[in-house]
Design a binder for these strands. Structure first.
Lengths: 314, 314
DNA sequence: CTGTTAGCGCCTTCAG
DNA sequence: CTGAAGGCGCTAACAG
């Protein structure tokens, strides 16, 4: 692993000056085809690669980005990160990872730490409590995931679309008593938007809404499903896969047969409960998009931009 | 986020030379208390932090490590990484993450990429197909997780101990017909060792072993449980939590009541199936240990070392 | 105790 | 088209 060769060695080995080697390395023009090939040969032969630190010191960019997830074991975020990583690597960026655990203070600490690293940019998975002022210093080099923070780039999911898709499908299948289990409105996206989309659909189709908003997680799902169930209920819409998991456990225990539907298409739920109707919020695409957007932004070819990923029934 | 101050600025601002500032920054001795405090004040006041690249170039390390997980959504690995990250950050190391997806070629590619990055060290979550020669170049700066590769540092789980713990408990509860569902022996740890520990316990306690080794994952668990069930079977031991999840789905569907036991204590399984007897292989501790070992090793205060984390009933 | 002087490996003028 | 010379921010000798 020691890459002890330097640009000087390569220069000597191929009988040219360092600047020429540098030009070849950076694909600059102003080098004869002959020389270029000769240098390239030596470079490849020795598996030489320029020192990133030296580069960084000269220019600016370290080519390092950070990805701050809420929890490492969030299935949804995993799916996004899974496409994000390769996208970054392809462009020569090294992604370092951090966990916020839904704590704004931890985000602050992490960003603090990152600012001492001369990081190029940050992808932050948003959650309740993230405020613009917390991120102020990063206006140009930050992409928020799953949430839109005014003034910042973001890649978010189509909450309304996802709910509409599911509701329309349930409705088409004949369901008229559809319960909803979600997240408090303090969570704008998973909470407020999804719930409102549900309410809206109910209103437009003359259905009686019955909703409960205990919050994210399996346990809340389990504990609170009962509250939206009436003897007539035939279907239940869940704002997230963890809620669906919890709710479905409850229903199974009570032997209550209900058509479940949920936002969030993960392998876990697909295996455990293939009967659940799910919609893919586009995690994979969101990951790619976030990486692309961040790179575009820090490479100065793009301005902050709000991007919404369309949902897709599966 | 631009840390535009340099050591020179600090020197000027506090009326000393750069070397003095450097000494203060690195807590070296040979600076009067007076001067030290004055410089420190200026540093804090301006929130100055030295450029990592410049430091790295001057011969110090980059303070960057890589963590190569098999899958970002492995619950077991998540738990280990969750403790590993803070451990690295505390020591000033930036962890970059990669996914191997159980493909040795991908590991090779990643290591290749890392060697051009002048990385300090690597934590690699092992799997079948990882050979010493693949890792040869990293002998001194690599820690393998969950597997021991001869000649390399490793942090592994106590496979035998975990199985014994579970079997002993099942036995103590009166179970005499205990099935086993595991992983082929090509996987030395989760596969061979756990299965053999099962066989050994059966032999020692005069039980009739009944095992099937379809491989990791929920689907294999679901598809193959039936093969180890007899009318007399009262308990089933699973080599991993995903197998347990699969098996338990099958049993639930068939309304077969069985005491399940499984290696792998994750919140998912604890919620979904609290009735399953689980043993914690010590993921959290393993993560801490791996980080500590890697740091000790690259700081040159330690030699490669095989570490085994004890299992613990929960 | 403290300042001065060299580079680390690279990119970037600037001459040739 | 190419090489020589500087300097990025920092640390490590070496002088005072």
């Amino acid at each position: 692993m020691p890459n002890r060769l330097t640009i000087n060695d390569i220069a000597r080995l191929s009988g040219v000056g360092k600047s020429t080697v540098s030009r070849v390395l950076n694909n600059e023009n102003g080098v004869s085809q002959q020389t270029r090939e000769r240098v390239a040969a030596v470079v490849n032969q020795h598996g030489f690669s320029p020192s990133r630190s030296a580069r960084a010191m000269r220019g600016q960019s370290d080519k390092v980005v950070a990805i701050i997830v809420t929890r490492l074991d969030s299935r949804a975020e995993n799916l996004a990160v899974q496409t994000m990583l390769p996208a970054f690597y392809e462009q020569g960026y090294d992604p370092i990872m951090m966990e916020s655990r839904f704590q704004p203070e931890l985000v602050a600490e992490h960003l603090q730490m990152l600012s001492q690293r001369n990081i190029d940019g940050v992808v932050l998975f948003g959650f309740t409590g993230i405020t613009p002022c917390l991120l102020a210093a990063w206006r140009d080099s930050l992409v928020v995931m799953a949430r839109d923070v005014s003034g910042f780039s973001s890649v978010s999911y189509d909450d309304e679309g996802a709910i509409e898709l599911l509701m329309a499908k349930l409705y088409a299948e004949g369901h008229r008593q559809i319960g909803f289990i979600g997240v408090p409105h303090s969570d704008v996206t998973t909470g407020k938007r999804r719930h409102q989309a549900y309410e809206t659909f109910c209103r437009q189709h003359d259905l009686t809404p019955r909703a409960v908003l205990p919050g994210l997680g399996m346990q809340p799902g389990y504990d609170h499903v009962a509250q939206v169930l009436t003897p007539e209920t035939t279907a239940l819409l869940c704002a997230s896969d963890s809620l669906a998991l919890g709710a479905s456990k409850y229903l199974q225990e009570r032997r209550i047969a209900l058509q479940l539907a949920s936002v969030g298409n993960t392998s876990l739920i697909n295996f455990l409960h293939p009967e659940i109707l799910t919609v893919d919020p586009g995690y994979a695409e969101a990951g790619r998009q976030a990486a692309a957007q961040l790179i575009a932004q820090v490479t100065d070819v793009d301005a902050p931009h709000q991007h919404v990923i369309p949902a897709r029934l599966v």
